[in-house]
């Protein structure tokens, strides 16, 4: 029997490592809408090092299905410690790949996680311009 969700999805759903809020976040992204069932809030802490901007820490809140929660956590795992440039290059296929697989109907969840990251970076850019 192939379970509905992969082992990795269940693991990240039940025990997300990056859950919560960063009080002194440099960027916050909130995406999704209650109508589709998923709302994600992403917090990033950015550190500048040799003219590089590194995502030092990242945390999330997600109201949504198991896939939305697991992809949120996986997106955080994938971008933590990376430069913003590198982080933005991560696409939804990378997130799905790391999670083993997702049911076809849940692929959009991984897109949401990526959108969340993009929104958080945009917020960071806006704030750092000021």
């Amino acid at each position: 029997m192939k379970p509905y969700y992969s082992k990795q999805v269940i693991e990240h759903f039940l025990h997300p490592k990056n859950l919560g809020k960063l009080k002194d976040a440099d960027g916050v992204g909130k995406v999704g809408n209650p109508a589709c069932g998923d709302v994600m809030e992403l917090f990033i802490k950015v550190e500048k090092k040799n003219s590089k901007e590194i995502i030092k820490d990242i945390k999330f809140y997600t109201l949504g299905c198991a896939a939305a929660i697991a992809t949120s956590d996986m997106a955080c795992e994938l971008v933590k410690g990376k430069t913003i440039q590198e982080a933005l290059e991560i696409n939804y296929q990378d997130i799905v790949g790391e999670l083993g697989d997702l049911p076809p109907i849940k692929i959009h969840c991984s897109v949401l996680a990526r959108e969340g990251l993009k929104a958080a970076v945009e917020d960071y850019r806006k704030k750092s311009k000021k």
């Binding site: 969700y5 269940i10 759903f13 039940l14 069932g37 109201l63 949504g64 299905c65 198991a66 929660i69």
Partner: peptide, 14 residues
């Protein structure tokens, strides 16, 4: 409130 039904079902299944 503040929880998706699908997530509850998956967690219960576990």
């Amino acid at each position: 409130r503040g929880v998706e039904g699908e997530a509850i079902v998956i967690a219960l299944d576990q």
